[in-house]
């Protein structure tokens, strides 16, 4: 049968930063082709197709419905594959190869992680799951 794509509404203007992305205008409707866990979603809008940040979209049906998974305060062990320096005060700065605990996997690609006493957002694309249990 036909593939029904999920529709989302654009909540803020977005200017693309690479040729595989598309520009968005507030109120545009887009259809989602693929959701990458790193927070980039491949979508089509009219005749355009490309990657857009999931954080700029809300579901067309029931925007109040939370789509994110529940937080897991026990934490899942991940290792950082790239260093990242916090650009906002709710983010964490981490070096490559640090073991941290993921406590909330947000669809926008900025997971909530814990390192010691510190908690903050970190790009999920710079994290790799470790095989070990705590």
């Amino acid at each position: 049968g036909p593939i029904i794509l999920e529709s989302y509404r654009v909540i803020s203007d977005y200017s693309k930063t690479s040729k595989y992305e598309i520009n968005l205008l507030t109120g545009d409707l887009v259809e989602i082709v693929e959701k990458s866990p790193n927070g980039w979603w491949f979508c089509q809008c009219d005749t355009k197709r490309g990657w857009v940040p999931a954080s700029y979209l809300e579901p067309l049906d029931g925007p109040e419905e939370p789509e994110d998974a529940d937080p897991n305060y026990a934490g899942e062990l991940y290792i950082t594959t790239q260093a990242y320096k916090a650009a906002q005060d709710d983010e964490l700065t981490l070096e490559t190869g640090e073991t941290i605990e993921v406590i909330h996997k947000l669809l926008d690609g900025w997971w909530v992680v814990r390192k010691g006493e510190e908690t903050g957002h970190f790009p999920s694309m710079f994290l790799h799951k470790t095989g070990e249990k705590k």
């Binding site: 909540i11 790193n38 990657w51 700029y56 690609g109 900025w110 790009p123 694309m125």
Partner: peptide, 22 residues
């Protein structure tokens, strides 16, 4: 065909979304 997603982190949610979540 679908290319690989960008290899840089996506932007943080716009202010509109942050207010909604708060």
């Amino acid at each position: 065909s679908i290319k690989l997603p960008p290899q840089n982190p996506p932007p943080r949610p716009p202010a509109e979304m942050r207010r909604k979540r708060a």
